[in-house]
């Protein structure tokens, strides 16, 4: 079993990265890998509540983030500093996350067996 960290760094919908990152996370979890997700920079916007991607012709993969606990993916982290820079807080997010600082993120990237950036 590998420790796989999926790093979300880009805003949703305008590129396929966010959806691909989530698909990759779910697929890795299905293959019994230990998966954690980290959201930094505009990647945090993937987790905003009340999104309606269909209005701009995009698939609503955002709802699927809620399924992660059923895939035993419980380690979901958001960069505290970037969340604050976006003038958002935890109540604006769709799922329960743990806020961590840059240093803790560095440590998690170092501890992972594989890191994939989306």
């Amino acid at each position: 079993m590998k420790k796989i960290t999926v790093l979300f760094t880009r805003s949703p919908h305008s590129t396929p990265h966010g959806r691909e990152g989530l698909d990759f996370a779910m697929l890795s979890a299905s293959f019994d890998q230990q998966v954690s997700l980290i959201f930094i920079d505009e990647g945090i916007l993937n987790l905003l509540k009340d999104q309606q991607p269909m209005l701009t012709g995009n698939r609503d993969y955002i709802a699927t983030f809620k399924v992660l606990p059923l895939y035993d993916v419980e380690d979901i982290f958001v960069c505290q500093q970037d969340l604050a820079l976006l003038q958002l807080n935890q109540q604006d997010l769709l799922i329960d996350v743990e806020l961590i600082n840059d240093h803790a993120i560095q440590q998690k990237l170092a501890d992972a067996d594989e890191v994939l950036v989306f």
Binding site: S30, D60, Y61, A63, T64, K66, V67, L70
Partner: peptide, 15 residues
């Protein structure tokens, strides 16, 4: 309707 994804078997069993 809730998650916008079809459950794989392991997830279905758990849910």
């Amino acid at each position: 309707l809730e998650y916008n994804t079809s459950p794989a078997i392991r997830v279905l069993v758990k849910a």
